[in-house]
Amino acid sequence: MIEALQFEFMQNALLAALLASVACGIVGAYVVVKRIVFIAGGISHAAFGGIGLGYWLGVNPLWVVTPFSLAAAMAIGLISRASKTAEDTTIGVFWALGMALGIIFIGLSPGYAPDLFSYLFGNILTVTTTDLYILLALDILIVLVVCLLHREFQAIAFDEDYAAASGLPVMAIYLALLGLTALTVVILIRIVGIILVIALLTIPAAVVRKWAGSLKAMMCAAPIVAAFFTCAGLVLSYYLDIASGATIIVVAGGVYFINLIVARRRGA
């Protein structure tokens, strides 16, 4: 492993894994307790449209996918609340529509899209120094917003009706939470890819939820668990020469089930 760390791509990969763990642990805690896992799934698949648009425009897809995911998150939130259609219906529409737009944009782009596959399934080994700066900036933004709005997020996750009755602007807080989820999705796409995003967003938080007595405790512990998943998956994939994103998820899934059994035995 020591000799692997001499490669810049491996150093970048580990840094990216750690940066992603911060975001997915913290935001994942909200996603799990607020039960918006499938909204996160919808956002991540809709984000594929942003990746396609990035290719078509010929810029780093990460620049385009960020506003694109945010817009998708706002649209899912607003339409599902305002139009009185079921939330899962709206999610389904955006899930597929984003993917379809991505395919069309990539078809319109000249030439072959070389690392398309890496956006679908992630390729942490191709993370560049620019990507790292983008991930760091997104992390800082997420942590700042959480510091400012934690109690409001907690209140709407706990009971939206009560939050509204006590005078909080529930819709605005909910959209802010979806915005944070979108930013986290963008970070995670680089690590594990669109299709596997929800696993990393939910499993670390779900694992610590069995043991944590407060949302804050979950948000402190989940990033550590996420860092273990990503680093362990990365090392395993290096030695076994298999896909890194998928290995990370398999490690996470394994720990999830072991944790379920242990928690059940302990009665937690």
Partner: peptide
């Protein structure tokens, strides 16, 4: 829900 009695009651002040 992972929340303490104290944090729950403080929610009543959030408005």
């Amino acid at each position: 829900f992972p929340i303490s009695v104290w944090d729950t009651v403080l929610m009543g002040r959030l408005g």
